[in-house]
Write a protein that binds this DNA or RNA. Sequence first.
DNA 1: GATTTAGATATTTTT
DNA 2: TATCTAAATC
Length: 780
Amino acid sequence: MFSMSSSPNRRPSISEMAAARAPVPDTNANYLDGLNPEQRDAVETTEGPLLVLAGAGTGKTRVLTTRLAHIIASKLAWPSQTLTVTFTNKAAREMRERALKLIGDAGEGLRWLGTFHSISAQILRRHAELAGLKSSFTILDTDDVIRLCKQVIEAENIDTKRWTPRHLSSLIDGWKNRALTPAKVPKDEAWQFADGKAIQLYETYQNRLKVLNACDFGDLLIHNITIFQKNPDLLADYHQRFKYILVDEYQDTNVAQYLWLRLLARGSNNICCVGDDDQSIYGWRGAEVDNILRFEKDFPGAKVIRLERNYRSTKHILAAASSVIDFNKGRLGKTLYVGDGEQGNPDAEKVQVRGLWDGEAEARLICDDIESYINKGGQYEDCAILVRASWQMRLFEERLIMLGIPYRVIGGPRFFERAEIRDALAYLRLVRSPDDDLAFERVVNQPKRGVGATTIQKLQTFARADGRSLFTLVPMVLQTDEVKGPAKRGLTTFIDQINLWRDRLNNGMPHHELAQVILDESGYTDMLQKDRSPQSQTRLDNLKELIHALGQFDSLAGFLEHVELVMDVGGQSSGNEVQILTLHAAKGLEWPMVFLPGWEEEVFPSRRSLDESGMKGLEEERRLAYVGITRAREKCAISFVANRMIFGRWQSVLPSRFVDELPHDNVEASSETGYSTMPGADQGFQGTIEDLGERSNYTSPGWRRLKENAGKGSKTGPVIDGKAELIATSSGKSGFKIGQRVHHEKFGYGQVLAADGTKLQVNFKNVGLKKVISTFVTGV
DNA sequence: GATTTAGATATTTTT
DNA sequence: TATCTAAATC
C-alpha cells in the first residue's frame, strides 16, 4: 500500500533525494489511525530534537515504530538513512517487524536499526584500522574479559584474592560507560584498586586487547567516539547518511552512548528519544538518568511530548504505581491515567498487600492464587511472579513443582554463556583465527589432554617474550625439550587436530558439520557422556542446539559475529506457563496478573543498593517498584513476610518502606503474621547421634562438621566458639528450619545449624561438651 | 597433572 | 545454603 516506485535497496538518485527532502504528506496514511493526539504529535513532529516521555503502558513502542514508518512512507528519508537504536536485540527485532508490518516492503533496507553495540560494531568494522585494530577483531564477552583481567593483574604480581579480576573488570567497565580512556580517568580514581595501580592496569589491559585484536563491549562505543572525534570528514559522512535518529529507552543510556548520539545527531539535528525517567533501573550498569533529565539543555530547541494515557492497567494499579513513584525527587513528572474513558473498569480489583509468616507461606499463597485462577478458566501464561533477586525464585519453583503447575524461569544463565557452549565456540574461534589466545587457553585442556597450568604458564611467558600468539608458538616449542611427557603429547595432538579441522573448513566442509566433528574428535562429547552428573545430558542437548543454530548461518564468520553480539538466541518459545522473573527482566512486559513478593526492607529495597548508592540507590529501587506494579493489567498482589532465610540463615525482616507508600484507597491489606511460635513448634525431636550416611552435598561448613563427627562414636559434636554442637535425629516429621531457635529441657536454648528433613544439628548456647540427647527438642 | 578438600562469599545483568 | 576458587593431597 505504501510501496515505492523503485526498490528501496537501490541507492536513491539525486532527484529522488531532492524529492525526498520535501515532505509529501500521505493522505492515506492509515498507519496513523487509532493514535491519540499526543501519540500522533510524537509521530508527526519530524523536525528538530524531540523527547517523548512515555509512561508505562502508554504505547511507546507503537509511537516509535509508527514514527519510523511515517518517516519512510512520507519519503522524508530512505530506510538506509534512518538510524534506530535500541538496547536489546529483542527490542530491535520487534521494532523491525512492526515497522515492516506498517509499511511493507518500503521498510526493507533498515540497515541501521539495531542495538548500540551492533551498530557501533558495524561502524567499527569499517574503520577498524583507525582504532589500531584489524577489521576481523573479536568481541570479547564478560567471561573472556575477566580472564584477561586476571592475567593483567597476575602480570603485576598483585594478589588476585585481595584484588579480584571481577572487581577490576567492573572498574574498567565503569570507566568505559563514562567514556573515559586510561588517559582521561581522574588520577585519584587509581586508588580504587591495588593501592593506586588501577589506571596503570587499565592501560595494560587496553594494550593486551590491541595485541589480541579484540574489543570488549565498552570499546565498541569508545572506539567509535574517538574515531569520530579524530576524523571530522568521516563523521561528516555519517552526518550525510543519517537524516533521522531514533532512540529507544533513552533513560538507560550511559555517558558513552550519549556522546555517541550527540556526535551523530550534530548532522541533521533530527533526533527523537523515547524514554521514561521513572523506569531507569540500570544505574548500576552505568545508565545516567541525568541524560534524559538534561535533554532540553543538551538539544536546544527540543520539543517534549508527554504520553500519559495508559492503556494497560486498572485505575487502582496506576494509582498504586503513581503513589510510590511520587516519593522520588527530581523527576520530569508525569501522571498516568486510564486511557479509555474517565474511570476505567468500575469493578476493578484493588491492589492486594499481604503479610505472611515466611517465604514458604508466601509461595503457598501465591501459588494457590494461581491455581484458583486456573480453575476459574484462566491461563498460566497470564500470571507472572516478579522478584527482586534470583535467589527468591527457588521457593516458588519448589511450590509450583509440588502443585504440578507449569512454569518458566525467564533470564538466568543464557544459552551462549553456558560453559559447554563457550567451549565449543572457543574451538571454532581457534579454527578460524589461530591468534585467539583466549580461545586457545580455554580449550587446550578441555577435555583433559595433560596440559596443565604449569605448561600454559610456560607457553605464555614465551609468547609474551616473542610477541607471538600461543597457537603459532607451540609448534616451535615442541621442537625443543621445554615441554615433555603427557603435556608434549597433548599439545601435539591438539595442534594437529586444529590444523586438520581448519583444512576441512577450507576444503568446504559445512561449518555445522565441522562443529560436530570437532566435538567428537576432540573427545568433548565423550567427556560429557562419561560424566554422570545430572547436568551432563542438558549439556549434550545444548550442544545439539548449538549445531542446529550453526546450520542456520551461511558462514562461520557470520555466525560468530552474531553470537558475539546477539546472545539471546536460546529456545524462546514460551508455552502456557507461569513466568518467574526478576523485576529487571520484566521491564517492557505485561501480564493480567502480577505477583510481587518479597517487599521487605533489606531485600527490596535491597540493602546493598542503599549501602552503595544511598539516596540515589533508594530512588532506583523505587523505580523498580514502579516498573513492577505497572506490569500488571488487572490484578497486582504485593506481599511481604516476617521471617526469611537469607544465605542459609533465618532473619526476621520488616515490611518494605514501599508498602507504606501505597495509597490506602486503592489497596486491600491483610496480614497473617500473628504467630507467636515458628511452625513446627509443637513437634518433638528425639536426639541421638548417628552416622549420617551419604548425602549429595556435604560441602557447607555446617554439614562438614556434622559429617566429621558422625560415626566416630562421639556423642557430641566439637566445641566451637565455646558452644557444643549436638546432632539430633528427628523422631517424626521435620518442621524445623535452619537458624530456627529450639529448646531442649536439659541444654536450654539453641539454634538449628543444619537439617535435611530427618536430622538436625543444633548449636546450644549454654552447653559445654555434653552427652546423648535423649529428650525432645522443641521449637520456640 | 589430577583429584579432593577447605574456605570465602553472596543483587539486579540489555551487549 | 550453594557456588566458586585455591591449597593440599594423591
